[in-house]
Write a protein that binds this DNA or RNA. Sequence first.
DNA 1: ATAGGGTTAG
Length: 737
Amino acid sequence: MILSSPPLTVPLCFLPSSFDPPYDVLRTHPSLSLLLNCKTLKSLRQIHSQIIKTGLHNTNYALSKLIELCVVSPHFDGFLYAISVFETIQEPNLLIWNTMFRGHALSSDSVSALKLYVDMVSLGLLPNSYTFPFLLKACAKSKALMEGEQIHGQVLKLGFDVYLYVHASLISMYVQNGRLEDAHKVFDGSSERNVVSYTALITGYASRGDMESARKLFDEIPVKDVVSWNAMISGYVENGNFKEALELFKEMMMMNVRLDESTMVTVVSACAQSGSIELGRHVHSLIDDYGFGSSVKIVNALIGLYSKCGELETACGLFEGLSKKDVISWNTLIGGYTHMNLYKEALSLFREMLRSGECPDDVTMLSVLPACAHLGAIDIGRWIHVYIDKKLKGVVTNDSSLRTSLIDMYAKCGDIEASHQVFNSMINRSLSSWNAMIFGFAMHGRANAAFDLFSRMKKNGIEPDDITFIGLLSACSHSGLLDLGRHIFKSMTDEYNITPKLEHYGCMIDLLGRSGLFKEAEEMISTMTMEPDGVIWCSLLKACKMHGNLELAESFAQNLIRIEPENRGSYVLLSNIYASAERWNEVAKIRTILIDKGMKKVPGCSSIEINSVVHEFIIGDKFHPQNREIYGMLDEMDVLLEEAGFVPDTSEVLQEMEEEWKEGALRHHSEKLAIAFGLISTKPGTKLTIVKNLRVCRNCHEATKLISKIYKREIIARDRTRFHHFKDGVCSCNDYW
DNA sequence: ATAGGGTTAG
């Protein structure tokens, strides 16, 4: 009875492939033409069941097509589905095996292709010339040199090294495994010298930085194609030889080589990196001539070019003109804004990106986090932190950089505890993670924590670099730890063999100046191999102010003005020192110079983030929508401050010239406006965090101490160089900044 | 069917 059943119950895959209907019948079959347009795994499943219904699933042709689509489709990841289909096939033909090797090679676990190869060989099947390029690609991708060498052995044993594709794949496998010499041996050992093998070798030399050898090979290529030109040009770009890259591009154009998308992208990025905006514009017009203007990749590269050269309007225009923006388009423009220090704009573009439905990736976050850090936008920063943990964990390769960026963001936004938490939760800390944390502690005046971390770092076997020492020395200078500073500066050269740079000297001289050790500071300057910069003279000048040393101040100021004649701050600082000594003639003279030179002052600006919105205040600001309430609050604050015994220090009237313009009462200072707004916008007891672009003046510092006590609020203020934590009438800087 | 461009940012 069973034997008389229709043949359909017999597993059809047992039928030999000779049962396949003629190819042209298959090729025109409706299910298969559907396959070509299949864009999702779901519709693929539907087509698969269609194939089964129509009895096509017993044809190797249909199955190989199905598996191929699973494996190569750019629209979905059908690798696991391919495996499940493959496992139902009892006797796959070599085409199907090869397609599976291809799939494994393209998958994230490429080496698994080799296990499958062992399976195939143990079934007694032999590979063909198509098999090896896939296997070798797997070894190249997963950097499996040993396996690659074994495959090489198989190739030789079975005599497949005469095949062009196999030969080129071998070379590429060795190149990508960093075995350039072996690759060259394969290349030399055969008469086969095709352009593909040349190109693989060229990239090998380029990645090693040996552009001369690469060029020699390039010049040897009898018939160069566009890929070999591009490889050579991008090799130059990678190694920073922009001039050569652009020369070669010109040559390429003269030879009438057909330029492709990749050429354009590489050349535009060469222009961007070398700042060749003129050539960049020329290439831009070529791009339009060639009709590449609609390629997202090229337009993205152009956006990068104009952003880097400061032409943000052009970059924006190109961005707006893109009909299909991808994540890179957004990232590039956001990066352009942060590059130009337009942090607010960067954040608003980021918001727009989220509204548009584009998913930010690690690169987005790596340019948005510094913007948050600059603005003190901790709410957005926290949101990003959650997003990273939810969406980016494990799927991006930049996890360590992201965490480091979070450490920096939290520290700069005033939340050093959160910063420390991120640091402690990290599994793979890079040197820069340690450095970021040390800088965070230094910025917050927590020198002990910075040094504890330094010893922990050494215990973990992490070698400090020059940046680490800038962090440690600035921790000393923020806390006035002279002996520790001296010690660490000495050990830096003695123990760690790191030559001090300008920044290290800067910290030390600042420290010495603050301690009133001017002689020692000057001695240190004389031992320096480089010229001191404005920052150094400026810190000495401030030290003179602190210690009332007028004589030295004049000579330091001369140096400062010589180096930075256009820096208004130099003159103002000197003027303040004269004012302290009641040398009013000199004060007037400087004022005249400033007016004559037409030097404008940088307006003081403070910001506070309330409900994820950053509110900025400049001195005497009256443009805030809640202006009335803010000034009402200011009046109340003044009354309470007076009751608490606060007396504005009028001797500092001129000091204000340095940081902010004197305009009526003291309460107009931007930080006070921001604090008033913070007080009326948050629940009692909420911590306030203020970010200021200049240094905080002494009066505001005193007032803020009292406000923290009167209103029982912790106030964290970041000024240009450090943090002040105000609590119960005391500041963490111990009035030393 | 198969090989070569670290295809755009930072």
